[in-house]
Design a protein around this nucleic acid. Sequence first.
DNA 1: CCCTATTCTGGCACCGAATGCCACAAGAAG
DNA 2: CTTCTTGTGGCATTCGGTGCCAGAATAGGG
Lengths: 240, 240
Amino acid sequence: MERSGGRGGQPRVATREVVLAAVRLFTESGFDDTTMDQIATATGVSRRSLFRRFGSKEDILFAEHDELFSTVVRYLEASPDEPLTSVFAAARLVLQGYLRDPEITVPRYRLVRAHPRLRDREVAMTARYQAAFSSYLSRCGDGGGREGRSLAAGVAAASLISAHNHVLRGWLRRPEQDSREVWAGFDEAMDFVRRAAEPMLHAERGPRRDHVLVAVYPGDTGREELLRRIGAAVQASEGS
Amino acid sequence: MERSGGRGGQPRVATREVVLAAVRLFTESGFDDTTMDQIATATGVSRRSLFRRFGSKEDILFAEHDELFSTVVRYLEASPDEPLTSVFAAARLVLQGYLRDPEITVPRYRLVRAHPRLRDREVAMTARYQAAFSSYLSRCGDGGGREGRSLAAGVAAASLISAHNHVLRGWLRRPEQDSREVWAGFDEAMDFVRRAAEPMLHAERGPRRDHVLVAVYPGDTGREELLRRIGAAVQASEGS
DNA sequence: CCCTATTCTGGCACCGAATGCCACAAGAAG
DNA sequence: CTTCTTGTGGCATTCGGTGCCAGAATAGGG
């Protein structure tokens, strides 16, 4: 009675088939010069159904990307509150999603680069990721007040997305390169972000500054006593 | 003979007038339910001329923003190579551009929040800023190789934009608040970004660690002499 | 003064994306 | 078989966006 019926939710023609056909047509004839009618006749799906299933001509290109996005969001929602770790894993998922089928992502990248309108669409996608990551980080941040935490979370998410996109673009430009290199670059970039983001997410108020310790003791203080006292002072300073 | 003629480049109706009228119509009737014909009759500019001057219905909303963007880009191009300082100043310009006329930016913000399509358009604008900032930082960065510098520049630009937008959104939600508070928040946010971005732009490899200085001098060393020597030592350590 | 080049402008026709409405097909549950 | 649900296609319509052409207004040259 509920959540069933019909042909079972399976569309007559698979989404992936439509996307592939559309990508091919766009690449051959250009995005603007390809009409929905052409896609309809090429795929055997009526023009009307195309609009119903994908929403718009642009959305056909990004249909699979949308699925990836919701996967990542679900992943984040189910993640324990280990801020950076979970978010890095999520970014890994995204990159994986791209590397998985170059058949779509690579020609799409070429189209996106050529067409400003599609570029905006792509940018909007990354913004959605950024918002999701930022919200997650803000949710399970630990330091600072609402305001500072939100700022830190936003900046951290922006950094992460930027680094991810940096690696991603590197691959998209030369998709033939060994994927191990890509992942190595990814790990490197994530380390870079971690070093920058870790302190700001945990800082009470701003990141730690360098410390200068000036200790004055009587000249006859024993060496061990001196080290012990200095060690204690440093530890106290780090704990603040 | 060149660059003149016609009515002198001055449109019959000022751009700002058109934008204000459009904003009003959009706010009253909704963005989708406002047709270009309505804007045409409301402003006295023909439908055809509207498309010629603004490109699209969305672009009417962001016309002044586009001017601001090119201003900022010109500013950056003319700036000396003082990476972070110039970029912070540029961000200041942007925020200033928003605060300058709330008459447009505030209702536009409300529209953008309600309408996903306009949101994407707004996001695309900030992406353009981010790209400009990133390119500038990458141009006049000093540490690391091409690759690392590009990554660092991208992350720094993303952080800056994110922090800027954080402050901007705060104001847009409550535009009635004292602008001095906004600027205070901006300075705070910029400091936050500076602390995060400074080390990564100048780092040869990895961020600076905390330093611990242990100085031992004869007990009868004069206070000024002591300060001078310690200061010199710290400075030398920072230069590394 | 007239002529011309340049530029903003408006009207018209046209294409195509996108939506609403309606009818139909096909499998699932009763 | 009936009914409900869901994917589907056709049709008409709206409206954003563009190409084309003609008119208006202004600056400069003869």
